[in-house]
């Protein structure tokens, strides 16, 4: 299964990628929301997107809104992975169309549990 990891921090992309590879995913990386849209457009096999919130060019919330507005991606699971930990932010992300929400810092088990909720890992 292929996952798209969108984060402007190279080290954070690496951390998330390592955890996903351990869970059996292969990973496509993007450095901000606009790059993420391009990667998504170019690869129809992407099965889930993990999205940071605060990024240049296009932030994670805008990415989620843009993806959900596209009929092709109505059912694409999207997980916000962010330091934003306010309850209002979680509500905002879910309202925009995010499927799940992981607050940084997180452990591999936290991420795994959220992917399990989305039936993306056994």
């Amino acid at each position: 299964m292929r996952a798209l990891v969108i984060d402007d921090s190279k080290s954070m992309r690496l951390i998330v990628k390592r955890q996903l590879v351990t869970l059996g995913f292969d990973v496509v990386e993007a450095i901000h929301g606009r790059d993420g849209l391009a990667k998504l457009e170019a690869d129809a096999t992407i099965a889930v997107a993990l999205v940071d919130w605060n990024m240049p060019e296009m932030n994670g919330l805008e990415f989620v809104q843009a993806v959900r507005a596209d009929p092709r991606y109505q059912n694409l699971p999207m997980v916000m992975v962010t330091t934003e930990a306010e309850s209002e932010r979680v509500v905002q992300a879910l309202d925009a169309g995010a499927s799940e929400y992981v607050m940084k810092p997180f452990t591999p088990d936290d991420l795994r549990s959220k992917l399990e909720l989305l039936a993306l890992v056994p």
Binding site: A85, S87, V90, V91, A93, L94, A98, E100, Y101, V102, M103, P105, F106, T107, D109, D110, S113, E116, L117
Partner: peptide, 18 residues
């Protein structure tokens, strides 16, 4: 935060916890 980060669906977090 670490405890609610694991296993709890985000929708239930905002609905049932403050």
């Amino acid at each position: 935060q670490a405890e609610v980060n694991r296993g709890l669906p985000a929708r239930m977090l905002t609905k049932y916890l403050s």
